[in-house]
Nucleic acid binder design. Structure first.
Lengths: 140, 140
DNA sequence: ACTTGGCCTAGACAGAGTCTAAGTGTTCGG
DNA sequence: CCGAACACTTAGACTCTGTCTAGGCCAAGT
């Protein structure tokens, strides 16, 4: 079948302390099979395109669970929706505001300086770098 | 930082090709008087706290107009709402995910490398850097 | 078998933001 | 002066993403 990684995904979930279930597996397969960055409603549509397999609530709960457990990362670039990123190694993003397309940037292509001093009583959780681009030949 | 007087704001609006109106002035005064970064609904609440001066639609339209004309900048860090930033010189942000507080970072505190090659057929519009922090002594 | 606990579900709900259609000036030509 | 044109504002309905609730399902242990 076109999903050779099924056992790998189960193992990955176990490594992240996530009990594998049928629904979670369906969602994980989509996230790790599709190359793009998907939003929750896209995942919902894709997982149910053949038959109704997973409910809306479960898709949202599962994506949030995956994000909390570090299996995927939330990318916040669009005020309307969250994207989920299955690449967990550090990297940054291009966001095309015209098309809504999200593209990865390798860290080595764009080094970022050390963290500045954090505000009193806080600890760093992550750093997001987003380069917003628009399609050219587009007179604003 | 000095608080711009009403006439300064009118001039600023004219410089940005925005016709000054009573409602826009109310909104601009809030944006440029309050030090923090405000969300649209906060602006709506503040502008109407004494008496109902500006409608919801106008607040949203005006903030978007200001953002398009470069008078303020949208900051997208929270999937639930957009923040508006009256500082237009380049800088980055801390975002405390626990408190929802947004804080500025001067560019000199955290230099970022040159832009990498942009995707085919796109031109850069801006670069956002967000350091997500959480309050310490906080068991996740 | 019964209970417990985790998972899943449909559908109601919430909140940010948008849209629509009408109303309010304000300007400018006649 | 009058009225037409135009830009701006408005209330409220609407949309859309995401959350919550209350109940159902299923597996494991007693």
């Amino acid at each position: 079948m076109h999903v050779p990684a099924e056992n790998d995904i189960i193992e990955l979930m176990r490594d992240h302390e996530i009990t594998p279930t049928q629904q979670r597996l369906e969602i994980a397969q989509i996230l790790f099979t599709k190359p793009q960055h998907l939003s929750a409603d896209q995942v919902l549509a894709m997982v149910n395109q053949d038959s109704a397999l997973v409910s809306k609530a479960t898709v949202y709960n599962t994506l949030k669970l995956f994000a909390n457990k570090g299996l995927v990362k939330e990318v916040i670039v669009d005020p309307a929706k969250v994207f989920y990123d299955s690449t967990t190694t550090p990297h940054y993003h291009f966001y095309n505001v015209d098309t809504g397309t999200l593209t990865d940037i390798e860290v080595r292509e764009m080094p970022v300086g050390n963290l500045p001093d954090l505000p009193e009583g806080t600890e760093a959780e992550g750093i997001d770098v987003i380069i917003r681009v628009r399609s050219s030949s587009h007179t604003t």
